[in-house]
């Protein structure tokens, strides 16, 4: 077994995951990045996307996050996500509905703030869709 980092995924409601992993790839705002043992300390924001957990050079788990923060240091990687769920639990119909609702909200938005919120919701839904698409392609 190679060296591992302690990976923690936390949402406001609970601690979702806490385990030793070899590598985690995260969707950073400025490009994907990986956390491996002895990574330089870093704090980054995340865009909506998929976190991939690796073991033996293979993806063992794919988790969707709707944005958040990652704190990385030599032996630990903590992800604070507001919404997180395994990719295989995403419901395609639900995503479709969210996409429509976001589009609707965007069309109805009157103030710049509302438009911004709708765009964020839109981006999350699109990222979800992409995540399901990716999962299907992998099978």
């Amino acid at each position: 077994m190679a060296e591992t980092v302690e990976f923690e995924l936390v949402s406001p409601a609970k601690l979702l995951m806490s385990e030793q992993v070899e590598m985690v790839v995260m969707p950073g705002t400025e490009g994907n990045f990986a956390s491996q043992p002895r990574h330089a300390p870093m704090i980054s924001t995340l865009r909506p996307g998929v976190i991939e957990v690796y073991a033996d050079n293979k993806v063992t788990e794919r988790i969707f996050v709707a944005g958040g923060f990652a704190e990385i240091n030599e032996e630990r990687c903590t992800v604070l996500a507001e919404e997180a769920m395994p990719v295989e639990q995403i419901d395609a119909a639900g995503v479709e509905a969210r996409l429509k609702a976001a589009q609707q909200a965007l069309d109805d938005a009157e103030t710049p703030d509302q438009a911004k919120a709708a765009e964020t919701a839109m981006a999350v839904a699109q990222a979800m869709q992409a995540a399901i698409g990716g999962a299907k392609a992998a099978h």
């Binding site: 923690e8 936390v10 949402s11 406001p12 409601a13 609970k14 601690l15 903590t78 604070l80």
Partner: peptide, 8 residues
């Protein structure tokens, strides 16, 4: 359950 998030 909400405590870990707030702490981090």
């Amino acid at each position: 359950a909400a405590r870990p998030y707030a702490e981090r």
